[in-house]
């Protein structure tokens, strides 16, 4: 599915300094019943965000108007658990374009890259600095520069480089996905398959 190109993102951020945020928290299984990719943002962090009677939980950060933005900063080991791409869809659909953490679970990270959410892995120290800065000043802006592969806390100028494979980087900057690529090499795949048993 096509997504918006990603180059430079400058935004405030929402801090969620909890470790091991798993995909069942990001989107609980009972909200995976759709057959189309619509409306998953409504159920992002459903059980942290809403009480059983669907009233908002006041103490959860997404219900606190002070914090907003296109960047979500999560604790270590973000996105562990299930392979549900719905977790990445919910994050995208809610309006986030970038998740920052000191460590990501594999499948989640991959899913993000496939749908246009940029996972930015920073050092634990830098993650701490971001949490402190945003908690201290919710209006603090962060710049994610994909071409330069840098993340910058604009108020202090603190900056770190982040990793991304050149291939994925180009995809993100152009809004391409892997299926476009694979389609383009189909004859090579078919030739390869002809030598393998079923």
């Amino acid at each position: 599915m096509a997504y918006d190109k990603f180059t430079v993102l400058r935004s405030t951020a929402v801090p969620l300094p909890i470790e091991n945020i798993d995909t069942d928290q990001i989107i609980p299984a009972r909200f995976l019943k759709a057959t189309e990719r619509v409306g998953f943002g409504d159920n992002l962090f459903r059980d942290w965000r809403y009480n059983a009677d669907n009233t908002p939980k006041q103490d959860f950060i997404l219900n606190n108007a002070t914090y907003s933005g296109k960047i979500l900063i999560g604790g270590k080991n973000f996105g562990s658990g299930s392979s549900r791409e719905h977790a990445a869809w919910a994050i995208y659909d809610y309006g986030f374009r970038c998740v920052v953490s000191s460590f990501f679970a594999d499948i989640f990270k991959n899913n993000c890259l496939n749908i246009g959410v940029l996972p930015v892995q920073v050092s634990p120290e830098f993650a701490e600095a971001l949490f402190t800065a945003v908690h201290g000043n919710p209006a603090a802006e962060i710049e994610i520069n994909l071409p330069e592969q840098t993340i910058t806390l604009l108020s202090t100028g603190a900056q770190e480089k982040f990793d991304i494979s050149p291939y994925k980087k180009e995809n993100m900057m152009n809004g391409f996905d892997d299926i476009d690529y694979l389609q383009s090499i189909k004859p090579e795949i078919q030739e390869f398959a002809s030598h393998l048993p079923i």
Partner: peptide, 12 residues
């Protein structure tokens, strides 16, 4: 794998 990859495997 994620759903995007399911689509990749189905198609290629």
């Amino acid at each position: 794998i994620g759903t995007s990859e399911v689509e990749m495997v189905l198609s290629t």
